[in-house]
Structures are given as structure tokens and as C-alpha cells.
Design a protein around this nucleic acid. Structure first.
Length: 576
RNA sequence: GGCAGCGUAGCUCAGUGGUAGAGCAGGGGAAUCAUAAUCCCUUGGUCGGGGGUUCAAAUCCCUCCGCUGCUACCA
């Protein structure tokens, strides 16, 4: 095994799911799940790890969704937060804390960053033209203004873009504009004062910082980040005329922005820090949260972020500008893992069209581990990936049921039938076992490296290949034949088989924790965190005490049938 | 429209200058401990089309075709 450095702590955040709406498998695959697998792996290695997530709650979208549900926005968010938390727990996401961007800590921090930027001259007041609806007595976000497109004449063009001719629009360009909410055409353009963050001044600094991570960020991430810089970074409005958000404090711009709030994209990433503060408060850890984020004490922290590709610009440009501009030594991200899209039968997951699989229904039909395995085995890493039920079923059936589940089953059942359900004592390991241990040493090293590098597809392929080694070994050793002529040799190979079961419980835990626990319990009690093996395999594979009782588990993974595939295609949408 | 990414075996995807790869599916065989599950062998691709650079191109350049995404107030 490679020497594992524990000289640093690991801080992990996954992109914050927006409060509105149930999350689909793409959201799980693109940030929530890989962050968890990686976090579990880091804990298994024995590194001090903090896995943080939160809901992103502010902005007009939440306001409008609450209104539609007939609730005030706080109540609405409380309810949605509980649903999201429950769904995350259901997927076995092992957050150290799952916070909320609407909590006090984030409000304080967001205002703190804004003040720092204001004092250092990186915020600028600008008067902008905004659409105001008299009927609703509120400003309307661009997408909630509809009217006739000045380019193609389409009469339901949105204020941000015409869906018909795909041209980007400004709401003031629309002919006969009206509110998409009430349909009222009693709208007017009003001046509105806003804060702009002078991102353009940070281009050289960002370029250097991004360039310095070229070797550790995936090409997808660097290329998206550089694209934004190459196109010329615009200054960005960071306040909005909505009610639900972090208030702009009076000491910025002499109170001239009273009643306005910060734009969600300004306060949401700050919640990574805010949620860490919430974690410290919730666990009686005082100022410990600062040691993960601020100054000298956070020097030993390596910070990882997980997100979908749509989020990359905000994490490589927007949020870093906030931090750089504050002039304070807050931690910037060290390793950033971006994911492409997971599509459903070639199209987008769609709530409105009821196409695709969402978190809660997924867990109604199958345990979390099935989803966790599939989503990492077929993770949208190199390019967009495509979910179909037949593909999903073939991966689950082949890898989990046939290769892993069946291996555990055949070893433990044979042991129960022929060796009294106890780890056999007789016989000793020979050249086949030594060769196997050596091969496992090599492969586990590769697996460890792939996981450290966040190469999930490759890691899963390697893990699967390790499971296959178990079946290969057993077929070659053939204790069911050997037992007729050489009972000691058969005993030794069954002992090896059981030790492999034990090993698989360890190696599989970050990916499929529930099943790994079951597998581990087949041969001995399992700790909550199953540690990554760090001894040579020759030693590990001799770890089970001879004579100890084993417990053959029930079938670990039921196979998915053609009938189920047909049923689920009908229920969730299938080929069209 | 602009920009970005992608296009490799029937399917899902690795592979970024040096004799085309994996898993699944297909074909043949072995075994019978096991959820008929396993193991071994094997068929299969002019790397989207065309042009160029190079001793050498899936890989670099140009061009065309196709798909997807982004386009900054949707998060």
C-alpha cells in the first residue's frame, strides 16, 4: 500500500441544491453523491474530514414558488428544507452539516463580505432600468416579463430570451410587455439603484490563480473558467429588488439601497462558510469553523468542491472574486471537480413533463446503494451521460448481483455447508494466494489513486475488477472439488474467500455503505466508518480469526427484471 | 448568431503523436460452491466526412456534417 499522508485536513462542499423543487438523479450524480463518496473515502483513510452542504434558498424563484403554494416564503423554505434533508439522508449522504443559506450565519457573513468589498472600493453604485409591475407592486425579474419579440414577432417571448428565435433579449426591448405572473400589462420601466461587483479588475489575479491549478483541475473546469476570462469579464450586479434574501446593510452606500437584498449568486457560495459556522454552533465547537476557512490555522486544509458544469463559472470566477476582493485570508478552493449532465433517454430530466427519476421515487423502488453504484459507475465525467432503464439494470445485475453479491453468497454458503459456518483453520496459503495478494496490492493502490484523483468511473471499474479477482481465485481454487481429495487445501481457499469478503466490505464502503456494512457483518462486526485497508494484503488476508463464526447474509442485491424495466419505463417515461 | 464540448466496436465509454482498448451484448468452451450466478477463449471498429502538418495522427491544424450545452437577471 502507498503511504497515506494524513498531514492535511479535508474540507468538502457540494454545490448547494436550490430550495425549490425535488432534485433528480442528475443533481445527485453531479455533486451530492460524488462529494459523499469522496468524503467517506477520506474518512476511511483516517483524515480529518468535513463534508458540508446546504440549501440555497434566496431569490425570486423561491418567492414565487411559495406564492404558488400559498405559503409565506419562510414556511415554504422550512418545509422544502426538511424534504431535501430527508432525501439526502435517504441516499446515505453523510453530511457533517446540511445548512441553510437563509440562516443567521450566512446573513452575517454575506454582509461582512459586502462591507469589506465596499470599503476596498470594489463595489460600485449604478442605476439600472428594471421592469416594475404596478399591479403586483414589485419589480419583475427578466424572465417573468413576457411580450412580443422585436426580432421574430413571437408573442410570448421572455424578457431574458426569446424561445422562438433563441435571441438574447432585454426586457425593455419587448413589444407589449406584461407580467408573466398576473398577465397585467400595467408595467413600467423604473430606475433602480444597484451594487455592481467590479469583477473586471480581478482578471489578472484570476488568470494567475486558475493557471496555477491547471494540473489539478479537470480540463472541463479550466476551459470553462478561461472561457469566461477570454470573453471579457463583466462587472456583475449583486443586488436585487426582491424581498427574500440577505438585506443590504445601511452602512453600505449610506442606506440608499434600503429594502434591497443581495443576489442569490452572491450569498449562496458564502453559505459554504456559513454552513460550517452552523456546524460549529450545532456541535458546540465555538470558533472551530474559522480554523477550516480562515488564515494561518486553515493552512493544513485542502478544500475540494463538487458541482455540475453550469456552476463552474461561479466557483472559478464569481466566488473567488468575492474572497480576493475582501482582502482577507479566506480559503480558496484547491481541487474542483465538475460534472457534465446526466440525461434521461437523450433528453433533460423534466419535472413538468414528469420525465426522469427524482430522489424520493428512486428510493421507493430500490435501495440507495443501487443508485449510488450506478451513478458513479456511469458518472457524467468526460461527457454528458445518458440514463436508460436497460442500461441501469444491466450494470446493477451484472456488477452488484452477479459479481459482488454472488461472490459473497457462494463463499459464505459453501463455508456454512461444509465447514460448519466457521473460518476454517486447516491448510496454509500457497503460491496462488501469494500471487493474489500481490495482485490485490497493485490494484488497491490504483483504486486508491483513482479515488484520490476523484476519477469515479475509473475507480468503480477498478473496484469491480477487484471483485472479479475473487471469483477468478475461487474458480481456480475450486474448493468444492478439492475438498474430496485434499480437505486442508479446500479449507485454506475458503478461508481466503472469507477474507476476500472482509476486504470487499472495506473497499466498497465509500461507494455502497449499506451493502458494505452487510458484507462486513458476514464475517465480523462492522464499525460505522469502515477504514481503508492500509496493511499489505498478505497480512490483511490472514486477518480473520480461524474458528470464528460467520453469518451468511441474505441475498445482497436482487436482480432487476424485464417486467420491472417495463413498469418503470411506463411510470417514469421511456423511449419516445 | 457567437462560444464551448462531444462524435472511437451493436450499447455505455477509456484512450491527446509511436503497432486501435475495457465492460456489457454476441459466439465457443470449462465448472456445478452460488441469486443459471461464475471462470477461460473469442467474433467485432477504414476512431463522423474531406484536406493538411509529421518518419509517424483517434490524438495537432483547416474545413464540412451531426449532436449537446452555454450565451451572464434560471438556479
Amino acid at each position: 500500500m502507498p503511504a497515506i499522508s494524513r498531514q492535511f485536513r479535508v474540507l468538502i462542499t457540494s454545490a448547494l441544491p436550490y430550495i425549490n423543487g425535488v432534485k433528480h438523479l442528475g443533481n445527485v450524480a453531479g455533486s451530492l453523491l460524488p462529494a459523499d463518496v469522496f468524503g467517506r473515502f477520506q474518512r476511511a483513510l483516517g483524515r480529518e474530514t468535513l463534508l458540508i452542504c446546504a440549501t440555497d434558498e434566496h431569490g425570486s424563484v423561491a418567492e414565487l414558488a411559495a406564492a404558488e403554494a400559498g405559503q409565506d416564503v419562510r414556511t415554504y423554505c422550512d418545509e422544502q428544507y426538511r424534504l431535501q434533508k430527508r432525501a439526502g439522508d435517504g441516499f446515505l449522504l453523510s453530511w457533517d452539516h446540511f445548512g441553510r443559506s437563509s440562516n443567521r450565519q450566512n446573513h452575517e457573513l454575506t454582509q461582512h463580505f459586502a462591507r469589506a468589498l465596499w470599503k476596498r472600493g470594489f463595489l460600485e453604485l449604478r442605476t439600472t432600468k428594471q421592469v416594475f409591475s404596478i399591479a403586483e407592486n414589485r419589480f419583475l425579474p427578466d424572465r417573468y416579463v413576457i411580450g412580443t419579440c422585436p426580432h421574430c414577432g413571437y408573442d410570448r417571448a421572455r424578457g431574458d430570451q426569446c424561445e422562438n428565435c433563441t435571441r438574447v433579449l432585454d426586457p425593455v426591448d419587448l413589444i407589449n410587455p406584461r407580467s408573466a405572473l398576473s398577465g397585467s400589462s400595467a408595467i413600467e420601466i423604473r430606475d433602480s439603484l444597484h451594487l455592481f461587483l467590479k469583477q473586471s479588475q480581478f482578471v489578472p489575479q484570476l488568470r494567475e490563480w486558475i493557471g496555477g491549478h491547471r494540473d489539478v483541475w479537470p480540463p472541463l473546469v479550466s476551459s470553462i473558467a478561461n472561457k469566461w476570462l477570454d470573453e471579457g469579464l463583466h462587472d456583475r450586479g449583486i443586488t436585487r429588488d426582491v424581498a427574500w434574501g440577505v438585506a443590504v446593510p445601511d452602512d453600505i452606500a449610506d442606506g440608499r439601497l434600503k429594502g434591497k437584498v443581495f443576489y442569490v449568486w452572491f450569498d449562496a457560495p458564502i453559505e459554504y462558510i456559513g454552513a460550517t459556522w452552523e456546524w460549529a454552533d450545532a456541535n458546540g465547537k465555538g470558533d472551530a469553523w474559522r480554523d477550516w476557512w480562515f488564515g494561518e490555522k486553515s493552512r493544513d486544509v485542502r478544500y475540494y468542491q463538487f458541482m455540475g458544469k453550469d456552476n463552474v463559472p461561479f466557483h472559478t470566477v464569481g466566488f473567488p472574486v468575492t474572497i480576493m476582493g475582501s482582502g482577507e485570508p479566506w480559503k480558496l478552493v484547491d481541487r474542483l471537480k465538475g460534472f457534465n449532465w446526466l440525461n434521461y433517454y437523450g433528453g433533460k430530466f423534466s419535472t413538468s413533463q414528469k420525465r426522469g427519476v427524482f430522489m424520493e421515487p428512486a428510493l421507493e423502488i430500490l435501495p440507495a446503494d443501487y443508485w449510488r453504484y450506478y451513478l458513479m459507475a456511469a458518472a457524467p465525467e468526460g461527457s454528458d451521460a445518458n440514463f436508460t432503464w436497460p442500461l441501469f439494470a444491466s450494470i446493477i445485475n451484472k456488477d452488484l448481483a452477479d459479481v459482488l453479491g454472488n461472490f459473497v453468497n457462494r463463499v459464505t454458503r459453501f463455508c456454512a455447508a461444509r465447514f460448519d459456518g466457521r473460518v476454517p483453520e486447516a491448510g496454509s496459503y500457497g503460491s496462488a494466494e501469494h500471487a493474489l495478494a500481490a495482485e490485490l496490492d497493485r490494484r488497491i493502490q490504483r483504486l486508491t489513486e483513482e479515488l484520490e484523483a476523484m476519477e469515479f468511473r475509473k475507480a468503480v471499474a477498478e473496484l469491480r475488477a477487484i471483485w472479479v479477482l475473487g471469483n477468478e481465485y475461487l474458480t481456480e481454487a475450486a474448493p468444492w472439488t478439492r475438498i474430496k481429495t485434499d480437505r486442508d487445501a479446500a479449507a485454506a481457499s475458503v478461508r481466503m474467500g472469507l477474507n476476500l469478503v472482509h476486504l470487499f466490505g472495506h473497499l466498497s464502503w465509500p461507494l455502497i455503505p449499506q451493502s458494505a456494512q452487510k458484507i462486513h457483518r458476514a464475517v465480523m462486526d462492522a464499525p460505522d466508518i469502515i477504514p481503508w485497508p492500509d496493511e499489505p494484503m498478505a497480512e490483511f488476508l490472514d486477518g480473520l480469526g480461524p474458528g470464528q463464526k460467520i453469518n451468511p447474509p441474505e441475498v445482497l442485491f436482487a436482480k432487476i427484471t424485464d417486467e420491472q424495466i417495463a413498469e418503470w419505463e411506463a411510470r417514469f417515461g421511456g423511449p419516445q
